[in-house]
Design a binder for these strands. Structure first.
Length: 215
DNA sequence: CACCAGGCAAGTA
DNA sequence: TACTTGCATGGT
């Protein structure tokens, strides 16, 4: 197979879907919160939860830090897994307080690999959530991998199905320029393609990437 | 009614 | 290391 041209893939997706304007969210802390709430959850439900948090004035470091756990649970109920996610949000806030005095700006001044490892040590933050926080809230150049990215890459034969997160990430980072805005929109494009065409029961006939199959 | 959604952690072998 | 399971709401 010819070496896959990821920039051509990106252009094709961009032409089809248009700029995705990710991440929806007004502030870095809101993006961090959204990254945790959207785990295995439809974004539509996360929006309801975030709106509840906004109404309750919990959508900030201080607000979330002082939010009673039971009220926090109620706010985020629509996003599912609310008991676990309430604890995850508290764990992130505790981490932010302990390591950076509650300053996200200070947190994001860390070297990318160092911060990534520290985020991964927080209960409730795995690779995708850590990278979403790094890229979308902190503008660090890390490519976010998710279920759809993995599915699209393996079904197109770019990488074997059993390829793990970090290797998938290296594949993208090694084959496109390290540009934060490109990483941002490319991931969003892959999610759009995945959500619309590349599900468990794929709709390849409609997919804009159809012509790249078996490349 | 079943299936899915912008994952992660903990338990088992 | 490689599976498996619990977590939970809301849309299709």
């Amino acid at each position: 197979m010819a070496k896959i041209d990821l920039m051509e893939i990106y252009q094709t997706l961009l032409n089809h879907f248009g700029h995705r304007n990710w991440w929806p969210g007004d502030t870095p802390i809101e993006i961090c919160i959204g990254a945790i709430l959207t785990q295995n959850t439809n974004w539509k439900n996360v929006e309801r939860a975030i709106e509840n948090l906004k109404q309750a004035r919990f959508l900030s470091y201080k607000g979330l830090k002082e939010a009673p756990l039971d009220r926090l649970r109620e706010c985020i109920r629509p996003s599912g897994y609310y008991n676990q996610k309430a604890l995850k949000l508290k764990a992130f806030i505790a981490f932010l307080e302990k390591e950076y005095g509650g300053s996200l700006a200070k947190m994001f001044r860390e070297e990318t690999p160092v911060l990534r490892e520290k985020l991964l040590s927080v209960k409730g933050i795995g690779p995708e959530t850590a990278d979403s926080i790094l890229l979308y809230a902190g503008r660090h150049p890390v490519f976010v991998i998710d279920l759809y990215t993995h599915r699209i890459a393996s079904r197109h034969g770019w990488l074997p199905e059993e390829t793990r997160y970090e290797e998938l990430q290296e594949f993208f980072q090694d084959n496109i320029p390290p540009d934060v805005d490109l990483y941002n929109d490319f991931h969003a494009q892959l999610v759009a393609a995945g959500a619309n065409y590349c599900r468990k029961t794929p709709q390849c006939e409609e997919c804009p990437l159809k012509r790249y199959l078996n490349c």
